[in-house]
C-alpha cells in the first residue's frame, strides 16, 4: 500500500514508500464492491491460494494477478486496483470462478470493480468500447455492428474492417441495414431508468471524514449522477 507519493529517501537509503501504513487499511472498498456486485462479488473468504491466477487466461499480461487484485480490494487499496490493467484484460472466461476453492467469484469482482471505475469516469479503450456498445444497443435495442465499429474506432476503423464486413454481408451473415426492437423508445427509456436508479446502499467514503477517501483516477469530468453523460462524452 503506497502511502506517500514522493520518492524521498530515508537516511538509511530505504525508500519511504515501501512501508505499508497498516492504519490506512480500510474495509470501505470491500463494502463498495460487494454493494456493486452483490453476493457474487463477496471476497471475504479468499485464502490467497492463487488458483484463480494460475488458471487465468490472460494473467501473463496482467500487472496484478487476479489474486493480488482481490487482495488489494480487501486491503482497501483503490489506487493500485484502479491503476492496474488487470480489469481490462479479463476476458470473462470464468475459469477463476469455476476453480476457486473458497467460492469467491473473481470474475464477478472484476465486473463490479470495473463498474465502479466506469462510474467514476475512468477512460481507456476497453471502457470506451463498452460504453459505445451500450449506447448503440440502447438506441436501437439491438446491435448494429457497422455503427458500433464506427463509433468506437471512427471512419478509419470502419475502413479497416470493411473487407471483412463486405465478405460477411455478401454471404448474408450481417445486414448492412440496422434493425430495431419493436418499441425502441420504451426500451431505451427503461434502460436509462435502470442506469440512473440508485445503486444498492453504496457507501459514500467521501462523506465520512475519518475514513480514507478513495481517490478518483479519471481524466474526464468525474462522478455524475447518471452514466449517460459518460456515454455521450466518448469520442465519435
Amino acid at each position: 500500500m503506497v502511502t506517500t507519493k514522493g520518492k524521498r529517501k530515508f537516511v538509511f537509503g530505504l525508500k519511504q514508500d515501501r512501508l505499508a501504513d497498516g492504519d490506512k487499511m480500510n474495509s470501505q472498498l470491500v463494502k463498495q464492491v460487494v454493494a456493486e456486485g452483490g453476493k457474487g462479488a463477496a471476497i471475504a473468504a479468499c485464502m490467497q491460494c492463487g488458483t484463480c491466477s494460475g488458471g487465468c487466461t490472460n494473467v501473463d499480461s496482467m500487472d496484478l494477478t487476479p489474486r493480488s487484485l482481490v487482495l488489494m480490494v480487501q486491503r482497501g487499496d483503490w489506487e493500485k486496483v484502479i491503476k492496474s490493467n488487470t480489469l481490462w484484460l479479463c476476458s470473462s472466461c470464468y475459469i477463476c470462478t469455476t476453480r476457486c476453492p473458497r467460492g469467491v467469484r473473481p470474475s464477478d469482482v472484476m465486473e463490479a470493480v470495473k463498474a465502479i471505475a466506469i462510474r467514476q469516469g475512468i477512460e481507456n479503450d476497453a471502457t470506451r468500447f463498452h460504453k459505445v456498445f451500450v449506447e448503440v444497443v440502447q438506441k436501437r435495442g439491438i446491435l448494429f455492428e457497422p455503427e458500433l465499429i464506427h463509433k468506437y474506432a471512427g471512419l478509419e476503423g470502419v475502413l479497416k474492417q470493411a473487407p471483412l464486413g463486405i465478405q460477411l454481408a455478401l454471404r448474408g451473415k450481417i445486414s448492412p441495414f440496422p434493425e430495431t426492437v419493436k418499441n425502441p423508445l420504451k426500451f431505451s427509456q427503461a434502460i436509462e431508468k435502470a442506469k440512473s436508479c440508485p445503486q444498492p446502499q453504496q457507501p459514500q467514503p467521501q462523506s465520512q471524514p475519518d475514513t480514507p477517501t478513495i481517490p478518483v483516477v479519471a481524466s474526464t469530468p468525474a462522478q455524475k449522477n447518471s452514466t449517460s453523460q459518460l456515454v455521450s462524452s466518448s469520442r465519435n
Binding site: S53, G54, V59
Partner: peptide
C-alpha cells in the same frame, strides 16, 4: 500456490500452471 491446471505435452511430460503467490 495452489495448482490450477496441468496440461500434457506430446512426450508425456506435464506443464503446470499456478501462481507463485509470494512473488505474485
Amino acid at each position: 500456490g495452489r495448482l490450477s491446471e496441468a496440461s500434457e505435452k506430446p512426450d508425456g511430460s506435464l506443464v503446470l500452471r499456478f501462481e507463485d503467490t509470494l512473488t505474485a
